[in-house]
């Protein structure tokens, strides 16, 4: 065991074993016994069809829901034994719907709320808030009521308010809904930065290009279960899996699958990657990249 504290129950960032969850209202089984292990610093994506249990799984991770059976250990802490409040310093949770998360009078107060709760000094709070405002480009909105700004900005405020707490584990439930290409870019950049800082990130999303770009590992869910756990390339290349789970690879990956992949080319995740491979096959890279060819 490496750097796990003696009290930690698991050296993993996330260690879910046999977790079941049944919603008491309507007696709906949302998770039917899932296992998930995530190492510190990993960035994983969770994908799968609507209602397959993604949001439920992530709510178990921050203790908002307690497993009906099985165990959920996050940052070495058994969530069943802690209140949601006590989990807050261990894990940050960005809600699928920002309206479920925002309540302060101004965006500024919204951003200060979490850092203050975890007992940071006023100077530290100011630094964190300023940093979040800068990173998410919220300068024009700090005095606004969070409900008065547009949905996509609200979404960014929701993410910023959690990022400002700098949790070791961050959970994002569909961070890019309603975002244009430009703001999706901000989220993409955020995930890269978190990766560099060593934060463990779990990102639920239907946005395949977003995930293809930043995560190395995807968990695929289908009706209450995890049915695959692999790299984006492996998952996207698995036609039966994709069809069974209502998923679809990014357009460029689809094109790659029907063109270069049968010739032994890569399951490309971005247009640039596919273009490079095609150009190589047509013998053109030298034309454009004279400097690279010695």
């Amino acid at each position: 065991m490496t750097d796990a504290t003696p009290s930690a129950l698991s050296p993993l960032a996330i260690d879910v074993r046999g977790a079941r969850y049944v919603y008491p209202t309507g007696n709906v089984t949302a998770l039917g016994g899932v296992d998930l292990q995530v190492k510190p610093g990993e960035i994983i994506g969770i994908i799968g069809q609507n209602g397959s249990g993604k949001t439920t799984l992530t709510k178990l991770l921050n203790g908002l829901l307690k497993p009906t059976a099985g165990t959920v250990i996050v940052d070495g802490v058994d969530t069943a034994k802690k209140s949601v409040q006590e989990m807050a310093p261990h894990v940050g949770y960005v809600f699928q719907n920002p309206n479920h998360q925002l309540f302060a009078r101004t965006v500024q107060m919204e951003l200060e709320f979490g850092p203050r709760n975890i007992g940071l000094s006023e100077e530290e709070i100011a630094v964190r808030v300023a940093e979040a405002v800068e990173f998410f480009g919220l300068q024009d909105y700090i005095e606004e009521h969070p409900y008065r700004v547009s949905f996509p900005i609200r979404k960014l405020v929701g993410i910023a308010s959690i990022v400002a707490m700098r949790p070791p584990i961050l959970i994002l439930d569909e961070p890019s809904t309603g975002q244009d290409h430009n703001t999706t870019h901000v989220i993409n950049g955020l995930m890269r930065r978190l990766r560099d800082q060593g934060t463990t990130v779990v990102c639920v999303s239907h946005d395949m290009p977003l995930l293809a770009d930043v995560v190395e590992r995807v968990i695929v869910m289908k009706s209450t279960e995890i049915i695959a756990d692999a790299s984006p390339r492996e998952v996207f290349a698995d036609k039966t899996l994709m069809a069974r789970t209502n998923l679809q690879a990014p357009q460029v990956t689809e094109i790659a699958l029907q063109t270069v992949v049968p010739l032994g080319g890569p399951v490309a995740l971005t247009p640039a990657e596919l273009a490079a491979d095609i150009a190589m096959r047509t013998g053109r890279p030298a034309a454009a990249r004279t400097d690279a060819v010695g």
């Binding site: 989990m87 807050a88 479920h100 309540f103 709320f113 709760n117």
Partner: peptide
């Protein structure tokens, strides 16, 4: 209910 869980998950006592 929702606002309470949101506040709790940001550590409100």
């Amino acid at each position: 209910g929702i606002i309470m869980s949101a506040q709790k998950s940001r550590g409100m006592k």
